[in-house]
Design a protein around this nucleic acid. Structure first.
Lengths: 336, 336
DNA sequence: GTGAAAGCGCTAACAT
DNA sequence: ATGTTAGCGCTTTCAC
């Protein structure tokens, strides 16, 4: 990569000082309009572009937001990312992305690379492994370094930073009520993600709704997607079920297939609702009724919150924004 | 964001000079082992982290790769991104991402923000609008600035830079042969993306295969997803068709549904193959046979190619890597 | 073994 | 209206 032209080069070329060139290019009124134009022309003809690194060093601001997400292949996160990028661009920021791939170590390393001055702030969603280890020292570290940080979706309550979450509790609560309203008698909650915060919140919302409805809750927590079929079949053989709420999207599709293979008609015999409004819900047959988290909005709101903090427009208090969920009704639930 | 501790602060704290501190922290043998350790301890206790911006300014290398993709919500691109991130991390680089959202202007702006020294190189896939306008001046600009660049998937042949593509021509050629091998008589090519390079290449591959098979090619080019149904139905009513190859993934699912609604059994009456191995292919019913492009590998290979160029390990010649496609056989095609 | 000094490219306070 | 100078935080050559 051959050296680019610098202010100094331009100064030589134009026979003025570096500062004059700098001021001219920044349209400072200090410089006469004619020299200003002359300098600009020469700069343009040499394709001059100011070096951003040098600027950042001087201004102590990079206009870059560091983003750490657990997985890009989960559609939810790529939607959030879409929102983040849009809002960041609108506010004049760039984003640099690290993927933790659900690993504690990678998350920690990512934090380290962000607190060395290369970003103005951090947006992140906590890795699964971190939530299990409950080791949050790296977050505390980044706070100690005074790098503004906002956590979204998967957050750690003990960490004193801005947060943007989805109302998982209420979303599950409402979905349960919804199933009840379409006359479901026995509602099962299928939770493969009980190891992460959002999974737990959704389960609590379900339990609360069942309690309010004076119904007995039924929950199964398969270890992973492979064990769903067996556990679900076992349960269906033991108890009668006419509605299933799942903590994620993919489980709902699997549950639908399992139920159908065992002779249930959907939605006539069993209604199914999943969490997350993604491609596979839309294209499943029948299409899946889901609790939508407005992923894009979460991304946008995270950026707004962070930038407010960076530019110190926001109050000193920690803010915790909660994005409301919405039920998107499709064909996996009975119409009444 | 309160000021962080610097080398200078450390120098005061330890009563040695800045350069001594710098050398000590970088484990220079010039510095005595005892002072070295003393300084390191103090640095650690003050949570010292070297400022990366300053380093970059000095070293003229950022260890950052700029990535410009047309859309993050297309699964193909998020898979490529996954590959890019993995390989970049492995080679000690970070990535910063811009989304062109298929817009010429955004793509141009993104290039501008990358050629100001903030990245060591650029990886990109060309926006749809750019391919239609055929205005490639911004790419020429970035080349003039000597920023290494690699284009992947959607590339511009006229631009003199490294490229990584999928063998779209061969992929379509092979898929057509595959359909012929399972005894399809009338193979239709459904192409909604004839406006971008890869769509054209796939169509050419199909036409070549049909020519080699001495069959008459049949192609329909709907303007968008909404017009697929009508055009396809019109065609099915006019001609007999027992196999459909589509230029993308989503069209294949739509085609499958349209065909079924019109009384065709899949795969018994019509076999269908799509391009791109994504979630919806896997979860469609029946699951879809596709031409897989190995998105992740494309990402990894792009990074390797770029880093070779950045670190000048590669020869001076432009390289054009071609990733082979593979047919993933599922249930939308007849078994023989 | 340690330090002084220059310089990466830019900005801005302070001369002139 | 233009130039001089210092300095952002770091590395590195050269001197002691």
């Amino acid at each position: 990569m051959k050296p680019k032209i610098t202010l100094k080069d331009l100064a030589n070329l134009t026979n003025v000082s570096v500062s004059t060139v700098s001021k001219a290019l920044n349209d400072s009124p200090e410089i006469g309009i004619n020299t200003r134009n002359r300098i600009k022309e020469i700069a343009a003809s040499y394709n001059y572009v100011p070096n951003n690194i040098a600027r950042s060093l001087k201004s102590k601001s990079t206009k870059i937001i560091g983003v750490i997400i657990p997985a890009i292949l989960l559609e939810f996160f790529s939607k959030v990312l879409y929102g983040i990028e849009q809002e960041a661009t609108a506010l004049g920021y760039k984003i640099v992305i690290c993927l933790s791939n659900e690993s504690f170590e990678k998350e920690k390393e990512s934090i380290d690379t962000f607190i060395n001055g290369s970003v103005d702030g951090i947006i992140l969603s906590v890795a699964e492994e971190t939530q299990q280890k409950k080791d949050y020292s790296h977050f505390e570290k980044s706070l100690k370094y005074n790098v503004p940080m906002v956590m979204f979706d998967r957050v750690v309550n003990d960490i004193d930073c801005d947060k943007v979450t989805v109302d998982d509790f209420e979303g599950a609560y409402n979905a349960t009520k919804f199933l009840n309203d379409i006359d479901s008698k026995n509602i099962l909650f299928l939770n493969v993600i009980s190891n992460i915060s959002v999974g737990q919140l959704r389960e609590e919302g379900y339990r609360k709704a069942m309690a309010d409805l004076k119904k007995t809750p039924h929950v199964i927590n398969p270890k992973n997607y492979n064990s769903i079929e067996k556990e679900l079949v076992d349960f269906l053989n033991k108890k009668s079920v006419d509605a299933i709420l799942t903590a994620d999207e993919y489980s709902a599709v699997l549950a639908m297939n399992v139920a159908r293979m065992h002779g249930f008609k959907i939605p006539d015999d069993i209604s199914i609702i999943g969490f997350t409004n993604g491609l596979i819900s839309e294209h499943a047959i029948p299409s899946l009724t889901v609790v939508s988290q407005h992923a894009e909005n979460i991304g946008k709101l995270s950026v707004k919150t962070l930038v407010d903090r960076i530019e110190e427009k926001s109050t000193k208090h920690i803010v915790h924004e909660v994005v409301k969920t919405k039920i998107v009704e499709r064909n996996s639930t009975k119409k009444i």
